[in-house]
Design a protein around this nucleic acid. Sequence first.
DNA 1: GGTTCTAGAACC
DNA 2: GGTTCTAGAACC
Lengths: 122, 122
Amino acid sequence: MINRKVIKYQKYKTNRSFLSKLYVILNDNTYNDIIHWNNEGSKIIIINITRLCDVVLRKFYKHNNYSSFVRQLNIYGFHRSQGIIKDGVCFEHEYFNKKTTKEQINQIIMKDKKKKIFIGLF
Amino acid sequence: MINRKVIKYQKYKTNRSFLSKLYVILNDNTYNDIIHWNNEGSKIIIINITRLCDVVLRKFYKHNNYSSFVRQLNIYGFHRSQGIIKDGVCFEHEYFNKKTTKEQINQIIMKDKKKKIFIGLF
DNA sequence: GGTTCTAGAACC
DNA sequence: GGTTCTAGAACC
């Protein structure tokens, strides 16, 4: 009974994590003109920073600060990358792409807070 | 004769400095829907980051990286600030406002490169 | 002196 | 675990 609660809680948490939300955003065509996968599904392209802040960040992350979004990308191990010319800002991650499963996403850990995670619930 | 050359060179340089360009941008109505002074002329409001990158940064700073722009603001001593609600990103500087003269702008020095400036031409 | 990308650190 | 603002450091 306790285990079931823990699992439920973990699922609840992970669906609301930075990466899970990012995955939802990227696979929602609604935001295709703001942020999307590159053709190969290997990189993230931010087309419109202004609308990313006003629409996407406000809705999913409850803020509208582009710098905070980039900080989170870095904390989770994303790197700036080169997209197609005239495209927007491009980021990529070794283990985060269009084919990554939800389970795999939940296995990606933060860069500078590893300790806290290992002594935490998991 | 040498002095005149030096003065000419300094004028040439300062007109192309980060702050001088920023002052030009802020006082050009062309970019009013992208970046402008607040009503009091005391703070900088960035309305549209996307167009700031695509139009203003490309033209004046030969790049289109918002993070680089913010880095420069910090190096010159600007601080994030609060604008009117629903406004964009807001920055302010103790000595940089709408009434600042070109001469005063040229007296503002960089934060972490002070040494280099003091052993330089001036 | 400017550009780029990422990290520090305090706060929540 | 996320948010915020600013700084480090390497490169140009």
